[in-house]
């Protein structure tokens, strides 16, 4: 209470904080990133709409690369473990993260998911996010790069409608290219839309079904993989 004039008004204390509301998540993401860098694992955050073909791209990748590189995946889903089961059938270790009502992964969910995988032994860990073009873009998970899967059936204007997702993408995979003859989609318009939301647009056209473009995608993965060198961090615990 005010004890200057005795008016009885409460004292209002202003506190300047100036801190990101996501600071807690960002700390968790830094922790995950340290783990990945220390173990020399390339962690990729794979995002896209429900049904864009994220799991199909990973299945095709697993079948082509699993004998050359140690791949693993963590698949997030609101209610089922189907994606992780599909990836396990494609021959790679895969853990399901059931998020319940959460529409996105956050750094802590990924950290918990690590306990279900022999992730230290991997060359590449794919973190398959919840199918959603909005929320997952906001949360850093500790990944080295973001890959967004956008199927050509979704429409040319999706990058303009969901700019944050595409701005944060290091690579966009235009998926389901085998459907091109059946669709009225203008790929030039789609790539123009990407150039208006991504400062350095990097786009590959792929089809998990026919294998089109998968060589270029695998070349991109190997290029990213070549940038990863295990280096020890002073770290208090192991998973």
């Amino acid at each position: 209470m005010c004890d200057v004039c005795g008016c009885g008004d409460p004292d209002i204390l202003p506190i300047e904080v100036q801190e990101s509301i996501l600071a807690g998540n960002d700390r968790g993401a830094r922790h995950n990133r340290e783990h990945f860098e220390e173990a020399g694992v390339l962690a990729l955050n794979l995002m896209g709409s429900p049904g864009s073909g994220k799991t199909a791209v990973l299945e095709a990748t697993a079948r082509r690369l699993r004998t050359h590189l140690r791949l693993g995946a963590m698949s997030a889903d609101l209610a089922t473990e189907r994606d992780a089961e599909r990836l396990a059938r494609a021959g790679i270790p895969a853990a399901a993260i059931t998020t319940g009502s959460a529409c996105h992964l956050d750094a802590d969910l990924v950290h918990h998911g690590l306990h279900k995988l022999p992730w230290r032994d991997l060359d590449i860990l794919f973190v398959e996010n919840v199918g959603n073009l909005v929320c997952p873009a906001v949360y850093d998970l500790g990944q080295a790069a973001n890959v967004v899967v956008l199927s050509i059936a979704e429409g040319e204007d999706k990058p303009l409608k969901y700019p944050v997702m595409f701005r944060r993408a290091d690579l966009v995979l235009l998926s389901k290219m085998d459907l091109l003859p059946h669709l009225e989609v203008d790929l030039a318009a789609l790539e123009d839309a990407l150039a208006r939301v991504m400062p350095v647009p990097r786009v590959l056209r792929v089809s998990a079904r026919t294998g089109e473009g998968l060589e270029a995608w695998i070349a991109w993965l190997l290029e990213q993989r070549a940038c990863v060198h295990a280096h020890p961090y002073p770290h208090a615990h192991r998973h």
Binding site: I12, P14, I15, E16, V17, Q18, S20, I21
Partner: peptide, 8 residues
């Protein structure tokens, strides 16, 4: 997405 100030 920044928390600037709290008045309590």
């Amino acid at each position: 997405i920044l928390l600037e100030r709290i008045e309590m």
